[in-house]
Design a protein around this nucleic acid. Structure first.
Lengths: 112, 112
DNA sequence: TTGAAAAGCAACCAGGAGGTTGCGTATATG
DNA sequence: CATATACGCAACCTCCTGGTTGCTTTTCAA
């Protein structure tokens, strides 16, 4: 209920991965990786879908805290929220560690 | 159409992330991180859902190549397919690199 | 002040996700 | 052979997703 950077719940990480689990959203995310903030109509350019469609995708990523929203004048600008992606990375890193260890144990068991 | 380790399409990675985008599936995956293969009924233990439910989740992860399936006698055993998780890690790493660079450029622009 | 740009809100739709139950089928085992 | 185990298949249900369109509201600028 109070998801900060240190508290990484399974449900929280799952929500982040779900937010990344769409090709359109990954494309949007790639464009946000320049570190700057972009308006919705700006982000709609190049995608084959409508502005409302893009807006929905951005909302999904915002709920998962992958991006952040900011109202500037008459436009809503979205920016990458890097900490959340970092969480996802850390999660995968830990998983990799685990099976790396398992593999190592398996190897030493077989070869020695 | 021929997704090997080097060819990482956006749609492919999106499918992997989508496969990770569910709390039940993440729990199953965590148990597969011991590097060994487990049967479906074995994996059903501890989850609050039915065997068919678990089977569906495993099928989703298998389609995304996150896990692999193998028939052994009368049971179907699933195991982690580590390469695919590695792909997802690499994707996030590249994204992080990008915005790290962007942040660096921004800093040097502001402070010098 | 009048108009255009940017976005929000709401309704709608097709399809898929997540889950269940019931029943059939292969495979060990007594 | 008989029976229990492990699983697959199929139908079904509810709810969310991804996408659209239409209309309203806010904000900037001529």
């Amino acid at each position: 209920m109070s998801p900060n950077q240190t508290d990484v719940t399974t449900a929280g990480v799952a929500q982040v991965f779900a937010a990344l689990g769409d090709a359109n959203r990954l494309s949007l995310l790639a464009r946000l990786c320049d570190g700057e903030s972009h308006s919705i109509t700006q982000l709609t350019q190049g995608t084959g879908i409508s502005r409302q469609g893009v807006s929905k995708h951005l909302t999904v990523m915002e709920r998962a805290r992958v991006v952040s929203k900011e109202r500037v004048g008459r436009e809503t600008r979205y920016a990458l929220q890097p900490g959340t992606l970092q969480q996802a990375r850390t999660y995968l890193d830990r998983a990799s560690e685990q099976w790396d260890d398992a593999l190592l144990r398996l190897r030493s068991f077989l070869e020695i």
